Amino acid sequence: MAVFTAVGLGDLTQWIKQFPLGNAVALKGIASGIENSNFFLTTERGEYVLTIFENLGFDQLPFYLKLMRHLAERGIPVPAPVANDQGELVVALHGKPASIVSKLEGSSQMAPQPAHCAAVGAMLARMHLAGRDFPMEQPNLRGLGWWNETTPKVLPFLTAANDHLLRAEMHFQEAFAGSAHYCALPHGPVHADLFRNNVMFVGTRLTGFFDFYFAGCDTWLFDVAVTLNDWCIDLDTGVIDQARARAMLDAYHAERPFTEDERASWQQMLRAAALRFWLSRLYDLHLPREAELLTPHDPSHFERILRERIATPAPELFHG
Rank of each mutant, 00 (worst) to 15 (best):
Ala92Leu: 12
Ser265Arg: 12
Gln173Val: 11
Ala2Gly: 07
Met123Asp: 04
Asn229Leu: 13
Glu54Val: 11
Asp59Gln: 15
Gly188Lys: 12
Phe39Leu: 09
Gln268Trp: 02
Arg304Glu: 04
Leu279Glu: 02
Gly216Tyr: 01
Gly46Asn: 07
Thr5Gly: 02
Arg45Phe: 06
Leu282Asn: 11
Asp250Leu: 04
Ala111Leu: 14
Glu290Phe: 10
Trp231Arg: 02
Leu293Asp: 12
Arg304Ile: 10
Phe53Arg: 00
Arg142Ser: 14
Gly145Tyr: 06
Trp220Tyr: 15
Phe63Met: 09
Gly208Glu: 08
Phe134Cys: 03
Gly216Pro: 09
Lys96Met: 15
Val226Tyr: 06
Gly131Phe: 11
Arg74His: 08
Thr312Met: 05
Arg196Gly: 00
His181Met: 05
Phe210Ala: 03
Ala291His: 00
Ala115Asp: 15
Pro156Tyr: 10
Leu12His: 10
Trp146Met: 10
Asp163Ala: 07
His286Thr: 05
Phe19Ile: 00
Leu27Lys: 10
Pro112Gly: 04
Phe258Trp: 12
His181Gly: 08
Pro97Cys: 08
Gly87Cys: 12
Tyr182Met: 03
Pro156Arg: 07
Glu260Arg: 15
Phe222Asn: 09
Gln113Met: 13
Thr13Ile: 02
Ala111Gly: 06
Pro77Phe: 00
Gln14Asp: 12
Leu67Phe: 09
Leu228Arg: 11
Gly238Glu: 04
Gln60Asp: 15
Ala264Phe: 01
Ala245His: 10
Pro288Thr: 09
Lys96Gln: 14
Lys28Arg: 14
Asp85Leu: 04
Leu50Ser: 01
His191Met: 07
Gly95Thr: 02
Ala83Thr: 04
Ala314Ile: 09
Met68His: 01
Thr227Lys: 08
Gln18Arg: 15
Pro313Ala: 05
Thr312Asp: 09
Tyr252Phe: 08
Ala254Ser: 13
Pro97Ile: 01
Gly22Asn: 13
Asp218Arg: 05
Glu316Ser: 14
Leu93Ser: 08
Pro189Asp: 15
Lys153Met: 04
Ile76Met: 07
Thr219Gln: 07
Leu67Trp: 00
Thr150Arg: 11
Pro257Ile: 03
Leu65Lys: 01
Thr5Met: 10
Pro299Asn: 05
His116Asp: 06
Gly131Arg: 12
Val78Gly: 11
Asp85Gly: 07
